[in-house]
């Protein structure tokens, strides 16, 4: 047992403290650690890439599907081109240009019966005046995303400014500002959106404003609560005692430290904004025809659901998938930013 030599029994003392402080786990910054956790969540990563692709598509599609193109139709040939079912050119049932009308037994090739010239096909079909659904949906997605993202950015600005100001000032200012939020949030969003929609008319800008007016409440509340807790932190107190201006403290210390919460809130606001755009369209306060949005496409085609379901279901599916991606990414980010989730 005792294999040691006598020279082992000499005092060597403590090692230097650097060696002591060695930690086997790799050290990661907050953002690196969040990124590591986000990557573990496959659904969130897929959603993120999907959204990046969708946004890129929405921007780039301006070149090859201009809005005019999607709105244009040949009034002489409506009878030929109207309500053509989706045709992939491949013999895939339900995607081959044939449709089975309710009550019929056999499906008919609508392209043939309406006399569409050979070789011409519409991958997502056409609407009731012969416009390509694929083009309409491309423009609709663009408009819906534009409305939702701009509205969310406005929410972000108002909400963060309001929340930081209220939380930082505290006292009666905070109290009053909280009451205002309380009053506004006890009024249903639908009403605020409708009123503003009525007041501002059918332009895209007015829709954005109407939606933005309701979405900032949640952001303001969260930011205010975080400001209240952050402003007691040592580094904020230190910055204050060094005479930094409140504005600088907010920009340099407060907002970066609540960035995680803000990002998650943004991810959750976008699908709500997309949904409200569709609601506005459904109550006749949406974009002005012939401009298309996902919401207007859905509500315009809704009456024909029984006969031409694809005209409703295609924009609906796109709306759902985009919303879903935002929610999944938001969920993933929430877990990634929450250190408590790291034990899993």
């Amino acid at each position: 047992m005792m294999t040691a030599n006598t020279e082992d029994f000499v005092i060597v003392g403590a090692k230097n403290s650097d060696a002591n402080e060695h930690i086997s786990k790799p050290a990661l910054s907050f953002w690196q650690d969040a990124w590591r956790r986000l990557k573990l969540n496959k659904l969130a990563v897929i959603s993120m890439w999907f959204l990046i692709l969708i946004l890129a598509f929405a921007v780039i599609s301006n070149i090859f599907v201009p809005q005019k193109d999607a709105n244009a139709f040949n009034s002489d040939k409506v009878g030929v081109y109207k309500n053509l079912p989706p045709n992939s050119g491949l013999p895939i049932p339900g995607w081959d240009g044939k449709i089975k009308a309710p009550g019929d037994n056999a499906s008919t090739d609508v392209y043939e019966s309406q006399g569409v010239p050979d070789g011409e096909k519409f991958i997502l079909g056409t609407d009731n005046i012969g416009r390509s659904v694929a083009k309409r949906v491309t423009v609709g997605l663009r408009i819906s995303l534009l409305v939702a993202i701009v509205a969310t950015l406005i929410d972000l600005l108002i909400g963060v400014a309001y929340g930081v100001f209220a939380g930082w000032k505290g006292g009666w200012i905070d109290n009053t500002m909280q009451r205002i939020i309380e009053i506004l949030s006890s009024i249903p969003n639908l009403i605020i959106v409708t009123m503003l929609g009525l007041l501002l008319g059918n332009g895209i800008l007015s829709i954005i404003l109407a939606i933005a007016m309701t979405g900032w409440l949640g952001m303001a509340r969260q930011v205010r609560n975080m400001t209240l807790s952050l402003k007691e932190r040592d580094y904020v107190l230190a910055a204050q005692s060094l005479g930094e201006s409140s504005f600088k403290i907010a920009i340099k210390h407060l907002i970066p430290n609540m960035a995680g919460t803000i990002i998650v809130q943004v991810m959750m606001t976008v699908p709500t904004a997309i949904m409200f755009e569709a609601v506005l369209s459904a109550i006749n306060l949406g974009v002005k025809p012939p401009t298309a949005s996902l919401g207007s496409l859905i509500s315009d085609a809704q009456a024909m659901l029984q006969f031409y379901p694809y005209q409703v279901l295609i924009p609906s599916a796109i709306l759902v998938v985009v919303s879903l991606a935002f929610v999944l990414l938001g969920d993933g980010l929430r877990d990634a930013f929450d250190p408590r989730a790291s034990e899993d």
């Binding site: 949904m275 569709a278 709306l319 919303s323 879903l324 935002f326």
Partner: peptide, 9 residues
């Protein structure tokens, strides 16, 4: 993620 009116449709 699915608005109720789309679910309704």
């Amino acid at each position: 993620s699915v608005p109720s009116f789309i679910l309704g449709i």
